[in-house]
Amino acid sequence: MTLAATSPTGAIARKHLPPGRYGLVDLLRSEWTKLRTVRSTMWTLGITIVVGVGVSALATGEARAHWASMAAPTRLGFDPTRISLTPLFFCQLAIGVLGVLVMSAEYGTGTARATFAAAPRRAQVLVAKTAVFGAVALLVSEVTAFLSFLVGQAMLTAPASHASLSTPSALRAVVGTGLYLCVVSLFALGLGTILRHTAGGISAFVGVLLVLPLIVQALPSSIQNATLRFLPARIGVTMMTPASRTPHAFSVWTGFLVLCAYAVAALVVGGVLLVRRDA
């Protein structure tokens, strides 16, 4: 009853704002809610893991089946870690699609307006998105890499040679595979932010990862040798392989930094456009 004695101006007079202003912590929470409350997230992440483990099992199973008929030099060069990890290139499509969607779906559905009305400092929204999606992508990518490695090695029963996490450089290759998938999906998020369109973002992503290598291979060998090392796919092979035998490639961690540069460049360009363009 005491509360019934409202001020003459009603609800407005009682209004008090939280201290300070909205910030990154609020946006991280909001982005996490956004990510976990749409089915496409669970679908694409689920597909990433299932496809990864599946293709890895297929490749290793195939190798095991042909082990007996394998020529001696082939057996000598056989790298069980590599064969269980490089099939994970397939996963980049699933997790990359999610990366594009995380931003493009906002525009496709009109949610972007609600988002930017709540948080008009848009660069901060992109930072929060990148952090939340990046953390989830890293977790899922590493889970995929470890599971694929373990399942793949289990398929390679004796007499086929197989590896374990204590095999030299195997752990680095497994972790590297997860990192590759994570960074590539952040590159996709950057493309989605630049293009604001799901189909366009996915096309650009596929273009850079799958079509660009074909174009480079059609170039004269002098240019080819100079440019090959910059291709994400080439960097990926190095990161997924224990002992790199790839010609015209960066070393593992230099390659990783170049890959990160792709993602950072796409995200920075996307961020600048995000702030400049009308929502």
Binding site: D26, R29, S30, T37
Partner: peptide, 10 residues
């Protein structure tokens, strides 16, 4: 969920 993500942002 739509309202929740907006609420959290502010």
């Amino acid at each position: 969920a739509h309202l929740l993500m907006l609420a959290e942002a502010n």
